[in-house]
Write a protein that binds this DNA or RNA. Structure first.
Length: 354
DNA sequence: GGTTTTGAAACGGACAGGCC
DNA sequence: GGCCTGTCCGTTTCAAAACC
């Protein structure tokens, strides 16, 4: 589906992403936040907290607790709102700003005394109040790994492979749309619908990057937050380490038993699942092969879902404007004919006299 | 028209409890 | 004990609405 060159760029990104992991710069796939944490830890000589340490990302040699947040900015504005802060649990908040190529723009250091509640805002009016750092020293190998990663990421954007920073989701949507001739939603945050088919069916696409990696402690993978999704079908896409599609399934949304927190393994057990691309993952089974939408649509119709079709709009009848008030029964009496005849005769007589 | 706010989206992890 | 599920939390990004 991708060209050879595009696959090479994706493989290169996977390599550069792994390089960050191997160097300890990142520990998960949330690379923006992790790169920011790494840079702040380098600068302030922090001891980085574990994966799930509430509100504290690093601890300084003097015991100060740091909360670190990162943001990629594409405009000149540094305005930012951070919510759900717990100022009683840390001493300093560090905001790390990157440009779109992951070059450090600045780091802001905000003492907790400036954060009275759980929401904190950086605006034009207050940004100058805080200590700003725009250069961080770090060993050359780290610098090079970050530069290489940023270049590789930028190449994905420049070659039209991804349209946002959600790489996994973008690629999964691309595969699903290519395979099923779907039209991707222009609005990237449209609730519950990622793509549409010209036949009117709607689709939510969920993608998981499934491969052996120390990034994940557990094998359990979830398909969270499908509650309220209005799409007709869920398409599950799995990607291997180099972002090649390692499986694709289509599931009627209404058949998903636990939409709030389904396991990825629901594709093994949910009724009506069909395989679009065979599974290369041992614990995700191949199901009945998907034969195209004709089959799906005919099943929809036999399931009486056809009754849910929107009623065809009724064209209003054109009613002529009444020029003369008429009686409800629309019948003309003999008296009316006589009166009309007399009036016409009188009119003709007047015309002759004149 | 630029800035700020808000809500929805994405992916992932931890923990508790039930079941076998 | 191991597995699975439910729930809640963590992270950042995007875009529309609201505001100035």
């Amino acid at each position: 589906m991708y060209t050879k060159n595009q696959f090479q760029l994706l493989k290169d990104f996977a390599d550069k992403n792994d390089a960050l992991f191997d160097l300890g710069i990142t520990t998960t796939d949330s690379f923006t936040g992790e790169i920011g944490e790494f840079i702040a830890c380098q600068h302030f000589k922090l001891h980085k907290s574990g994966r799930s340490n509430k509100a504290v990302d690093g601890i300084a040699p003097n015991g100060e607790r740091y909360q670190i947040k990162s943001k990629v900015v594409s405009t000149s504005s540094f305005s930012h709102t951070i919510s759900n802060l717990q100022p009683d649990l840390f001493d300093k908040l560090v905001l790390v700003y990157f440009d779109i190529h992951y070059n450090l723009l600045k780091m802001l250091v905000i003492p907790v005394s400036e954060i009275p509640e759980s929401v904190f805002r950086i605006t034009k009016s207050n940004i100058s109040k805080f200590e700003s750092i725009d250069r961080v020293k770090m060993p050359l190998k780290f610098q090079k790994a970050l530069t290489d990663f940023a270049k590789s990421f930028t190449a994905l954007q420049e070659n039209g492979i991804i349209r946002s920073r959600r790489i996994v989701g973008d690629i999964g949507e691309f595969y699903a749309c290519k395979k099923l001739d779907l039209i991707i939603s222009e609005n990237q945050t449209e609730k519950g619908i990622d793509a549409r088919h010209p036949n009117g069916l709607t689709f939510e696409v969920k993608t998981r990057w499934v491969y052996e990696s120390d990034r994940r402690i557990s094998e359990v993978r979830r398909l969270n937050n499908l509650v309220g999704k209005t799409a007709d079908y869920l398409i599950v896409v799995t990607l291997d380490r180099c972002f090649e599609c390692s499986g694709m399934w289509i599931i009627p949304m209404k058949n998903i038993a636990n939409p709030k927190s389904a396991s990825l393994k629901i594709i093994n057990s949910t009724p009506g699942v069909k395989n679009i691309i065979p599974s290369k993952i041992s614990w995700l089974q191949n199901r009945e092969s998907f034969q195209g939408f004709d089959t799906v649509i005919s099943k929809r119709q036999t399931n009486k879902t056809i009754a849910k079709r929107r009623p065809r709009p009724v064209k209003p009848k054109q009613v002529p404007l009444p020029l003369i008030p008429v009686e409800e029964n629309n019948e003309i009496s003999i008296e009316q004919i006589i009166i009309a005849a007399v009036l016409i005769a009188l009119g003709l007589l007047v015309a002759v006299i004149i």
